[in-house]
Computed example of a mutant assay.
Amino acid sequence: MSEKFWLVVQYPLKSAKSSQRDHWLRDKVMEYLEISLADVNLGYVDGSDMGQCISDPKKYALNIFCVVTEEERSIALVKRVLKDSRLDYTRIKIATMPYGKEETYTLKYAYKKGVTDFSL
């Protein structure tokens, strides 16, 4: 059995009161990633959350959680699916953490250069 990872796709939100568009985005991203990850047998979508960031209560985010087996291939697939599907690819952060371990997420991709911080 290959090693598993948590992979989280994070979108910034404007407020704690999420809009209809935020809910639509969450549903579409989860749907597209579920299909894409299953098609290549890399993993599955494990859920999402929306609201205040734990690290900074003044910031809000949509987090979509996946469990994947091949970290680098999964990151590349997620980026390609979101870009090709036009699902706000230019606003995402992607971070990973070993599955089953209490560690912190490591930022693997950010929508713009110079962004180095990641937290839920």
Rank of each mutant, 00 (worst) to 15 (best):
T104Y: 06
D84S: 10
M1W: 07
K112S: 12
E102R: 13
D27W: 13
Q10L: 05
N63K: 14
W6F: 12
L107V: 10
D22Y: 09
D117N: 09
D84T: 07
V68L: 13
L42R: 01
S55Y: 09
C53K: 13
D56A: 06
G114H: 12
T106L: 10
K79Q: 15
S15Q: 09
A61N: 04
M97K: 14
V8R: 02
A76I: 07
Y109W: 15
K14M: 04
K93P: 03
R86A: 03
D56L: 01
S19F: 04
K113E: 15
V67D: 05
K4M: 13
Y105P: 10
L107Y: 02
S15Y: 04
T96F: 00
A76S: 15
K101N: 07
E103V: 13
I94H: 01
R80Y: 09
F5Y: 15
V8E: 05
K58C: 02
G51Q: 11
E31W: 07
D84V: 05
K58V: 01
Y89Q: 08
G47S: 14
K28F: 04
M1Y: 08
L120P: 05
C66K: 05
R91F: 06
S85C: 12
K101Q: 14
V9E: 00
L7Q: 06
L37W: 08
A95D: 02
Y111D: 06
K83P: 00
R26K: 15
K113N: 13
S85Q: 14
I92M: 11
T69W: 04
L62P: 00
C53G: 06
L13N: 03
Y111T: 05
S55M: 03
K113C: 03
G51E: 11
V29K: 01
L33T: 04
L13Y: 02
N63H: 10
A76R: 14
K14G: 10
D27Q: 15
E72M: 06
N41G: 07
Q52V: 08
Y11N: 03
T69E: 15
T104G: 09
E3S: 14
S18P: 04
Y111G: 01
R91Y: 06
T106H: 08
E71S: 11
Q20L: 12
K58N: 11
Q20F: 12
G100N: 07
K58G: 05
P12V: 05
E103C: 12
S119E: 10
E31R: 12
D39F: 00
A110V: 01
Y32G: 00
R86E: 07
R73H: 13
H23P: 00
W24T: 15
Q10W: 00
K83F: 09
Y99K: 11
Y32L: 06
F5C: 01
Y109A: 10
